[in-house]
Design a protein around this nucleic acid. Structure first.
Lengths: 147, 147
DNA sequence: CTCAAATCGGACTGATTCGTTCCGATTGCC
DNA sequence: GGCAATCGGAACGAATCAGTCCGATTTGAG
């Protein structure tokens, strides 16, 4: 009942990225240097080891939460406004779907225990509650703006 | 963001135990044979491997959720009524305190990242929400009585 | 009172997953 | 066209977890 270290790091990193993103959309050609972020910058700011930060950038980019551009002067930026990215999105991007039990993932994955499992429907409800709690916190609220 | 297999098994096992416990307190000398439960019985009923069931019995007993008596004719019984045992109790008994992040466990366990972590207070709130969702489901509701 | 059976309790082994690190592919600037 | 800096994926080591086994303890019968 504890999220993995990578997910924890990802949340901290995305919060830092949202903080640098400022109030604007995150990409304006004029002051691009100010919002320029990359794995090295985020690593130095958050204290996360650089290789780990790179790995997280890869996963978050593959999940569509950030957009990355390669090459010299490249970097990353949030794909959506901070208010539209929740903890559930970040956690699911790093460690897969949020599901308390394996049977609550694909929908009809029999666990093999008990012909008529009476625990599963309640587990689905619990999963929904947990997911709702995580979806209710956005990066905007983590950046300290909308306390 | 998924509870361990042992915790899942423990929930199923405790639900089965609560079902056999019936509506009464769970221990009456006259019909003791009816509510007699042990690791072997629960294993056969739930499909959980016997050694694993034994391990779970040990942990649940150490946590004070069930009371065990050794020797011939011994067995286990719930220490409290099913309505007074929640999923949070069972999960904490098996896999330790419920805490999303390591810093939310002892209270002041600095993670070393960022001097002023602005994510932690929100993580505490999320941890509370998850814990509340798990504490809201009791063994009585899992047994199908109080739907 | 002695013996024997049955149970819980703790310790060990193997495996899977997680976290970390390193190296290659790709792109923009000079 | 060459160079430098960046992301992307692959490989290694470590830790935790799931599962299994055997010993300590207690009760019941003879």
């Amino acid at each position: 009942m504890r999220l993995s270290s990578l997910a924890d790091y990802a949340v901290v990193m995305m919060a830092a990225a949202a903080r640098h993103c400022g109030a604007g959309a995150g990409l304006d050609p004029a002051t691009r240097k100010h919002v320029k972020m990359n794995a090295t910058t985020l690593s130095a700011e958050t204290g996360i080891p650089l290789p780990t930060a790179q790995k997280l950038v890869s996963r978050l980019s593959a999940a569509g939460l950030i957009e990355s551009s390669r090459g010299t002067g490249g970097g990353i930026r949030l794909a959506r406004p901070p208010a539209a990215i929740s903890l559930a999105d970040v956690i699911e991007a790093v460690e897969g779907p949020i599901a308390m039990t394996p049977c609550a993932e694909h929908g009809a994955h029999d666990c093999g225990l008990e012909d008529e499992c009476r625990v599963r429907p309640h587990m689905n409800a619990v999963t929904g509650a947990v997911r709702g709690a995580l979806a209710g916190v956005t990066l905007a609220s983590l950046s300290g703006r909308a306390h």
